[in-house]
Amino acid sequence: MASANLEFSLAKAPAPGLQNPVHEAQGIFRALMNALARPGKLQDLPELDLNPPAPLGKSTAAIALCLCDYDTPIWLDKELAAAKDVTTYLRFHTGASFTNNPMDAAFAFVSKPENMPPLSAFAKGTSEYPDRSTTIVLSVSSLSHGQTVKLSGPGIKKEQGFAATPLPPQFWREMQTNNELYPLGVDVLLAAEGTVAGLPRSTKITFQES
């Protein structure tokens, strides 16, 4: 009886987090910092021995473990929220609480960008505190394929071409609207295998002439 319980609890124990929390978190942060400081430019994440439960991607998990704690309410998309292992994993390693209301989220994690709610569903900050906004982390399969847009603004010398997939069809229009709200708005991090890119609210988006 006792051993059965033990096995049960071992099976339920969340997968391990960062091997070396101090230095790995620092390495992840530097990649995120550079990603937002140089919008659209791909940044390599450090090598990590992370095996988060599906459908939480490894890069997405790295971002959560680097930035989230009990001060940062997290919103999860349907697929992530439905996975008990994912919520257990995130709660265990970050201590963060979850919210169903994207307006209350400091961070939002999206595993299926195709199905994500509009950007306007998330907190965009207030005119006195534009920093009180949601940072949205999208798991994407590629940071080179998909519709190519041109980025400009702070962090970009002249122009930066950028593409990612999958994204919802209205995504880039919404990002344009998001930029028009500046200095309010959401900031977006895109996480692919081992790589991240940033799209802060300050980035202007124009469409490639076809």
Binding site: M33, L67, D69, P130, D131, S133
Partner: peptide, 22 residues
């Protein structure tokens, strides 16, 4: 580490809103 996370989040907001005091 908790303090670093808090500062790192502030730095990221600062970068996203250049010149705004977080």
């Amino acid at each position: 580490e908790q303090t670093k996370r808090m500062i790192r989040r502030a730095i990221l907001k600062g970068i996203a809103i250049p010149g705004y005091q977080v």
